[in-house]
């Protein structure tokens, strides 16, 4: 399987640094940004992003806002919410707004990777379906 392209969004730099190292060791392609705004810029720039892991509580633009914007700009990209302050409501809100799943900090690395893989699989599945539909349409037109 192709390496999963993952974006990590969190204002805790120390956290991001360590987890990036660990994820890369496990064969994921990881980029990191430290705010919601940066995340949106990154999505614009890099069209190959597949999964975003997003911290809910961030200064300036918070997780939920970022999620909404991300989904608007790149609906196929799956978002996993990461919450450190344990509100069930935010997690549920996030799911309602289109997040793939949610995790509590501190999270088990294997659990995280499991969810990322799941998210990536879903995204790739969607992409395939879209491609199939387009091909079908073209062939029908031609026929």
């Amino acid at each position: 399987m192709k390496k999963i392209k993952l974006l990590l969004v969190d204002d805790e730099k120390a956290f991001l640094e360590t987890i990036t190292k660990r994820l890369e060791k496990r064969d994921l392609d990881v980029s990191t940004v430290y705010s919601g705004k940066e995340a949106l810029a990154e999505i614009e720039k890099t069209k190959t992003l597949e999964v975003v892991v997003l911290d809910v509580k961030m200064p300036e633009m918070d997780g939920i806002q970022t999620l909404v914007e991300l989904k608007r700009k790149a609906p196929l990209v799956e978002v996993i919410m990461l919450t450190g302050h344990a509100t069930v409501e935010t997690a549920i809100d996030g799911m309602k707004l289109g997040a793939f799943d949610y995790l509590m900090k501190p999270c088990d690395i294997d659990t995280l990777i499991g969810k990322v893989k799941g998210a990536a699989a879903k995204k790739r599945e969607h992409e395939e379906k879209i491609t199939e539909a387009r091909i079908k349409e073209i062939t029908e037109r031609m026929a």
């Binding site: 360590t18 660990r22 450190g84 900090k105 501190p106 690395i109």
Partner: peptide, 21 residues
């Protein structure tokens, strides 16, 4: 408590990640 939980969870997450690393 809400504030503290968030404050605690972040450093703890970092520690756990470093240990994992």
């Amino acid at each position: 408590a809400a504030g503290i939980a968030h404050e605690i969870n972040n450093p703890v997450a970092i520690m756990v990640e470093e240990a994992g690393w």
